[in-house]
Design a binder for these strands. Structure first.
Lengths: 206, 206
DNA sequence: CGTCTATTTGAATGTACTCAAAAGCGGTGG
DNA sequence: CCACCGCTTTTGAGTACATTCAAATAGACG
């Protein structure tokens, strides 16, 4: 039932776009023709350090992460992308340069992918997508700015609380190691934070 | 000599755009008519918390900062903008909602500003600017992502070193308090970092 | 020269990390 | 059904990084 799966995947992307700006029948067909469904198995690379990021990916089902491995071998997660999120290394994609980042699947993941060339041709065929993608990146920018602000102004505990508030689903779905690598703290310390929260909401001084 | 000053201001913006994509004479005139020069004196607000960010600003001369004041009264600087940088609260500007951020001048500053309505009309009159501003925001996004990554993966010392490398001019121009508020550390600690660097490049163990 | 602000320095404290060991938790095979 | 393996999480003790608060010093400006 490959066809059925693909159909369902595209439907979710069409619905996603429709929530931003209503699409005409022609535009929907354009989306269907330009985006290709693809399955990544758990632990499979979507993008590997040193390669050019050739596609933009829309996650239909599952979850991926984008991360950097520093010179000490530690993993730092820049972004998770679960259902209805986009992922791609914009710098590598646009400048067609090798990426310093990795993207891989945390769960079996179905994406819709579009290549650089197909994206350009999509813009030309339907300029509306020019605006759609501008709005998307603006939203991403605003989100990222909020996260940075939070990062320079809050303790690890506040950052974790904020993560739980903003992504309650992910908190259950991801291992502690992943979340710690996203927050920029050690897994051990995250464990302590969690236990602190559950055990002593506000201990009076006896 | 108001006219001369304005003329010089616009020239620097035209040169800036020209470095991205060559402009026709008509497009240059469009820029000249849509962007207005404006002087902000040192300490003057460009945007104040609670107000809508109504313009995008291009800094011709001087330096401004965008920051948030947290609930404990501490200042956290999201971005500096000196010559040939843009500043604006994108979220507030696009959604026409009150901003949680402040922008003010660190030095006497000359900007070129464009209103939301004029920006839209610029896009309509010359679609090329659609692409120009998309590229600009993409670059900003990439920069911001790098900074976030650096923030979650580096010590204060490494972050300061990176700041000095990326913005060598600003390091001399800004007070220690401002730089500390940008890096997310205390001014006292930045003082110690600086002295450490200059005094003991690598002290051997006796 | 005096005032105001910015920077430096010191001592004590708190936040988060490191390293190591123990405990929990599926799976898988005997 | 139990025993063992590999992986994640928890816990402990010691340490390093960064903050707080206070006081001293240094610059900037009228």
């Amino acid at each position: 039932m490959e066809v059925a799966v693909s159909q369902a995947a595209v439907e979710s992307l069409l619905a996603y776009f429709g929530r931003l700006i209503p699409l005409t029948k022609e535009e929907k067909e354009l989306v269907t023709s330009k985006f290709q469904p693809r399955l990544f198995r758990k632990r499979q690379f979507v993008l590997q350090e040193g390669n050019v990021c050739t596609h933009i990916y829309f996650v239909v089902r599952g979850c991926v992460r984008m991360y950097k491995i520093d010179n000490k071998g530690y993993t730092h997660i820049i972004q998770f992308a679960a259902e209805n999120y986009w992922i791609n290394d914009l710098g590598s994609f646009h400048n067609v340069t090798p990426s310093a980042l990795n993207i891989d699947a945390i769960e079996d993941t179905v994406v819709l992918q579009i290549s650089h060339a197909d994206l350009i041709s999509l813009y030309i065929a339907a300029p509306k997508f020019d605006r759609i993608f501008r709005v998307l990146i603006e939203k991403s920018f605003i989100q990222l700015q909020k996260r940075l602000l939070h990062n320079i102004s809050s303790t690890a505990e506040e950052r974790y609380q904020s993560f739980v508030d903003v992504y309650p689903q992910l908190n259950n779905r991801l291992s502690q190691v992943q979340i710690a690598a996203f927050l920029g703290i050690t897994p051990e310390f995250l464990s302590r934070l969690r236990n602190r929260r559950s055990k002593a909401p506000k201990p009076p001084k006896d």
